[in-house]
Design a binder for these strands. Structure first.
Length: 422
DNA sequence: TCTGGGGTCCTAGGACCC
DNA sequence: TCTGGGGTCCTAGGACCC
């Protein structure tokens, strides 16, 4: 039978900040999103104050102040580095790992010769806590969705671990799981299901497929199967192959100047293209998106334009050229913009696409790919932005987000090393 | 001609997660 | 309680073509 583990880092960004600030161990601590806009990570003390996930900072400013909560701007360089150390540790356990997000890793335990899964889960949890210093919740179950549920039970019902071995245990867990806590049921679906008398996950797995199909699309049906113990989600490398890749950022200030938009778009394309090459793919189109500074009855307004590429590519220069066509078509001198973004679409494996190529064209394209790979290697080794495209023109980069409360890059920059003595 | 069927591409936006 | 972040996937509806 299939068996997956989810290793979920508790309050991850907060845990990373606390690694170098032990004085904050039992204080209310939160981490903000880019541009210091929303709260995206909360210590238990912050959660206890009733501050929800993703809330805009301005809405909770008073309660933050009254409780002397400590706020940090997001420091992704630090979190990314700690995350990589955890992945490395897990790889010592098994190569069958899927890096799901910066703070979540799945492991396929199906084929591993483990006699006692409880003991395994506890040992892994202990290792990450002792060797890296980050507390985790480890859930083990027959599907990825159930492992995710188990990891939340590890927090609420267990001592950091929760293992589902039998079908009785699976059903017992689902009888205690409110539908809104299911991975894939959000604020829209949950009230609708409750209206129809469904409050617990077990009621979903017991429902007839005919009825379920009237409530869910393909994604929802997949989710129910997963809860029933039937794996429907891909695992491993395949799961990391994105069908779309997006990079976007809100500006620190409203932007009107075309050249600043150009430099922002070029920077986003550069990042997205590196991600595209990292999964060894090419794309055949891209969409440029701008968010307008003005609102329509409180709603955000977006405009977008899709550009079809002359041929599939992963070449940053070609992608930037096409993206600027799209930007020029969207741009209005009268416009004021809050945010820009780029989405790469029509993504296919490079090998798949190469099969359709003629021989003589092949060499020339291959040289472009090799050049780009060298750029990626340099930027990986010496830091993002070591080699960059002229259009990114740093002198125009006044669109950068706000980061007013960022902690030092303790682990990735020599100038930011913690000091023991003055 | 405004029409009927079917396919594809684009835009806008919904829904969810962290 | 549904948005002052970022990201992915999905779908409805319109335009356009055959």
């Amino acid at each position: 039978m299939s068996c997956y583990a989810l290793i979920d880092c508790n309050n991850f960004f907060v845990s990373c900040e606390r690694l170098f600030r032990p004085d904050l161990a039992d204080k209310p601590v939160a981490v903000l999103s880019n541009n210091d806009g929303c709260i995206v990570a909360r210590s238990n003390e912050i959660k206890a104050l009733g501050i929800p996930m993703g809330v805009p900072l301005f809405k909770v400013r008073d309660i933050v102040k009254a409780n002397r909560a400590v706020l940090f701007s997001a420091n992704f360089e630090l979190y990314g580095d700690i995350s990589q150390r955890i992945v490395q540790l897990l790889r010592e356990e098994t190569p069958l790992i899927e890096v799901y997000s910066i703070d979540e890793n799945f492991i396929d335990l199906s084929e591993l010769p483990i006699r006692d899964r409880n003991a395994w889960a506890e040992r892994v949890r202990d290792r990450i806590l002792k060797e890296i210093g980050v507390p985790t919740s480890v859930g083990v179950a027959p599907t990825k969705t159930l492992a995710k549920v188990a990891s939340t039970f590890a927090k609420t019902h267990g001592d950091g671990t929760w293992v589902v071995e039998s079908d009785e245990e699976r059903q017992a867990m689902l009888r205690e799981l409110p539908i809104e806590d299911i991975w894939g049921v959000g604020w829209r679906l949950a009230p609708r299901l409750r209206d129809r008398g469904v409050s617990w996950a077990a009621q979903l797995t017991d429902a007839s497929d005919a009825w379920l199909r009237t409530q869910f699309n393909v994604t929802g049906m997949r989710m129910v199967d997963e809860l029933r113990g039937i794996p429907r989600l891909p695992f491993g490398d395949k799961a990391e192959q994105r069908k779309t890749i997006m990079r976007s950022r809100s500006f620190g200030h409203t932007v009107r100047d075309y050249f600043q938009l150009e430099s922002a778009v070029a920077a986003f394309v550069t990042q997205a293209a590196a991600r595209l090459r990292a999964q060894d793919s090419v794309c055949d189109g891209l969409t440029i998106m701008l968010q307008l500074a003005s609102r329509d009855r409180g709603r955000k307004r977006y405009i977008s334009r899709h550009v079809k590429l002359p041929e599939p590519t992963a070449h940053t220069g070609q992608l930037i050229a096409s993206s600027l066509e799209g930007l020029a078509a969207l741009y209005d001198v009268e416009g004021a913009y809050k945010k820009a973004g780029v989405t790469l679409t029509g993504i296919v494996d490079r090998s798949e696409w190469q099969l359709s190529l003629l021989h003589q064209e092949h060499d020339e394209r291959e040289r472009g790919v090799v050049l780009m790979q060298s750029v990626d290697t340099l930027n990986r080794r010496f830091g993002r932005g070591t080699v960059w495209h002229a259009t990114e023109a740093k002198r125009h980069a006044q669109w950068q987000s706000k980061r007013e409360r960022q902690s030092p890059r303790y682990t990735t920059s020599l100038t930011d090393l913690p000091r023991l003595h003055r």
